[in-house]
Nucleic acid binder design. Structure first.
Lengths: 194, 194
DNA sequence: CGCGACGTTGATTTGCCTCAACGATTGTGG
DNA sequence: CCACAATCGTTGAGGCAAATCAACGTCGCG
């Protein structure tokens, strides 16, 4: 029994214990050591992952060879290369553990079957992706209209646990700035007694 | 009968004609004149909209009073303030017609009922939002790692009809740049014989 | 016709990047 | 268990892409 996952489902949907047992049966646990990849760019992503313990980042490598962090995820959140997962084509995203991490894996083929068996599961993921869409749209707005310092303050406000746990180089990349710039921003924020 | 909507549903789901008739019955048509609002910031968005004819933009006004265009949408696409729609809280997005436009409206309350009656409809919107999520995530990556000119070229490549139909001021805002910068980018692109 | 919306051009500024160097930790193989 | 390397964070100097501020031409339309 994995209570974190059960409560996660029931935050935004109504999955019965019987339904949950069916889902749980097809999900395997996987451990990922710090700095190791859960998914490598170029692979077809056959799974999406629910984080039970630890911390992960997903990133792409842009045309200049720069890693661009897309997601920073801790316990009780889902992560994956959604493009590759839903199309079952080769992906561009790498997912790497920032700490030793435990995830539960849900495969594409199992999920397709479960969607037909358990409509509440499809509802859950529809709502999950709705929220993710709204969140990334807001990040895009910030990228275009807020300064680097404002984006960093917003991250601290909305996701304090990320700001604490994740090395600044990944925070910087997630905010679309260089580590040097983030360092200077922090310096000026602390000297301004804030 | 609205064949555009029926074919749109069946691009990524399987909606029978009987199911479609049920959906169609609750959707009203609305005309929006050029420059008029379909949805104003501050309202609760009770509808999502399918564009049958015309062109719309959605935007927010940022803290400095600058309009930030979030979506540019033409025929056979959906638009809405998803945050306000799914939470039924006050929204921040305005939707305005760029041309005289005809939309079909689907209300929150009707959709909630239809989700229970027609699981295929829930599947359709799950997939629709999945694609929207992937697209906006890619825009975010571009915002952080591509130049303004690269983003503009990408828009022309991926959405040529938008680049043709939409005034440059809105294109610029959608790309997160000023109209002056877009003008200079276009000048240099054309002089470079491309 | 006159006015607002749209697009362009020029001069100047600026926020963040690049490049370079250097401590402090952490981890690891000999 | 220690030496050495890699990772992480910081600081400084200089550069650049795009913003800002200002002005102006054109077009469509009420």
């Amino acid at each position: 029994m994995t209570p974190l996952l059960f409560s996660n489902f029931n935050k935004h949907a109504h999955i019965t214990e019987e339904q949950f047992k069916v889902i749980e049966k097809v999900m395997d646990k996987k451990l990922v050591k710090k700095k190791k990849d859960l998914l490598a760019a170029g692979e077809v992503s056959r799974y999406i992952y629910f984080v039970e313990k630890g911390c992960l980042r997903s990133y792409i490598v842009d045309k200049d060879g720069i890693e661009q962090v897309m997601q920073l995820v801790t316990e009780e959140h889902w992560i994956g290369d959604l493009y590759s997962f839903v199309t079952q084509m080769h992906g561009t995203i790498t997912i790497e553990a920032i700490e030793d991490t435990e995830v539960l894996m849900l495969s594409y083929t199992d999920l397709e079957i479960l969607y037909d068996e358990i409509p509440a599961l499809e509802r859950f993921f529809r709502k999950l992706i709705q929220r993710a869409y709204v969140a990334v749209q807001q990040r895009l707005n910030s990228a275009y209209s807020a300064s680097a310092e404002e984006r960093y303050r917003e991250l601290i406000r909305l996701r304090p646990e990320i700001a604490k746990r994740v090395p600044l180089i990944y925070i910087a990349s997630y905010l679309g700035i260089t580590p040097e710039s983030l360092s200077r921003i922090r310096k000026s924020m602390f000297s301004k007694a804030e």
